[in-house]
Simulated scan of single mutants.
Amino acid sequence: MSPSPAPLAGFRLLVVEDDYNIASELGMVLGAAGATVIGPHPDAESALAALAAGRPDGAVLDIHLGPGITAYPVADRLEQMGVPYLFATGNVLRPQDPMLRGRPYLEKPISDRLLVRSLAQLLAPSEAPPPGA
């Protein structure tokens, strides 16, 4: 029996995370799942520069990147580009921000399995309903 393919094989994923240890772990987990990791980027400026250089297939964004600094500018740009993304944050009080409505949201600490499964679902092609349905 052949091993199952890596669930994120072929996907290029932008990672925006300001905590070095968490960023390193995210990179290892996503890489082991077959993804090509863009970053990780510790701030919105470097993430936006990476987006200017090329379109990723998806993204994982920490919301808070320092005192008073968020990844929302990156999320805005991803929206404009039509790139799916999810938020992964340690902020236990989910902000009542319209930016988060309808967005996948994972609360840290996140299990490796949950992160990979959530991204695989986010990136899976949506199935169109059959004609006449």
Rank of each mutant, 00 (worst) to 15 (best):
T70M: 07
P131Y: 04
P42I: 09
I38C: 13
L100T: 14
V37E: 00
L51K: 07
P3R: 11
G90Y: 14
D19A: 14
N21M: 11
A133S: 15
R94D: 00
G27T: 04
A35R: 08
R12N: 09
A6Q: 06
P73G: 14
A9H: 07
L78C: 07
L30N: 00
L122Q: 11
A71D: 03
L86Y: 02
R117K: 12
E25T: 06
L48Y: 11
S4W: 00
P7K: 03
V74H: 08
E25A: 12
Y85H: 10
R117V: 10
V29S: 02
D18A: 06
D112S: 11
D112V: 07
D76S: 09
G27I: 04
P98N: 02
S46L: 10
R12D: 05
M28A: 13
G82F: 08
L119N: 03
P129L: 15
L86R: 10
R12S: 12
N91Y: 12
P67H: 15
L30F: 02
A50D: 01
Q121A: 15
R117D: 14
Y105D: 06
G102H: 12
G34A: 02
P3N: 03
D19S: 11
R103P: 04
L106W: 04
G68V: 09
A133I: 13
R117F: 00
S46G: 09
I63G: 03
L86S: 08
M1H: 08
G102V: 14
G58P: 02
L61Y: 05
V37M: 06
P67A: 15
L123F: 09
Q96N: 13
P56T: 11
L106F: 03
P7N: 04
R55W: 06
G68P: 09
R117S: 11
S46W: 05
H41S: 07
E107M: 15
R117Q: 14
E17N: 09
L30R: 01
F11H: 13
L114D: 05
H41C: 14
Q121R: 15
P125E: 12
V83A: 10
A23N: 01
P95N: 03
S111P: 07
Y20D: 15
D97W: 00
V37A: 02
D57T: 12
P129T: 12
I38K: 05
T36E: 09
G102W: 11
P40G: 03
V15A: 01
M99C: 08
P130K: 11
P67T: 15
T89P: 06
G27M: 03
L30Q: 00
P109N: 09
